[in-house]
Amino acid sequence: MCSRPGAGGAERMGAMVPLAPPAPAGLPRRAFLAASAGLALLAAGCTAGSSDTTAVSTEEADRLAEQVAVQEAVVAAYAAATTADPALALSDLAAQAGEQLDRLRAAAPSATASPAASAVPSPAASSSAPPAVPTGGDVRTWLRGQVAGAAAAHAAACARQTGARAALLGSVAAGLRGHEAALA
């Protein structure tokens, strides 16, 4: 056993449990996988035959499509920042932003993919497209602001979703909070 330095006797007694199990018991892997396969409505646990539930789920799906547009803007921001200042070495973060976008698209059946998904936002994302990188400005700070805005938008949307969609949006929001920290 790896005992904690200075740990009290009570902590060394009795049944020991793993400090951090690999995943919470009963983690709904099936639901997340279903969402990734574009079956978000099914994964959200809609009650079959319930028109109310179906209506709510359709609304939630539309909201998730809005977040796809937000994420497309993040991907575009990374591409613009890399072009403006290649020395920033953003490849890892940009790849993760793309991974987040892929997961959101897979979970949002109503979202339409843009033709050049990795670099150019779709028309639906035009309102969320980032402004141009400020000429002569601090690209890193600008990018951090774009990421922060998207994280806040995803977090707000998360609170209005349920089930697997809420979990996905919350995770993406948290991932972007991590990007903010890395860009600080």
Binding site: D92, L93, Q96, Q100, R103, A167, G170, S171, G175, A182
Partner: peptide, 14 residues
């Protein structure tokens, strides 16, 4: 560690 960030914190791997 590299990378220092996680794209999808808390989510199980697909």
């Amino acid at each position: 560690r590299t990378p220092v960030t996680d794209a999808l914190p808390g989510l199980p791997q697909a």
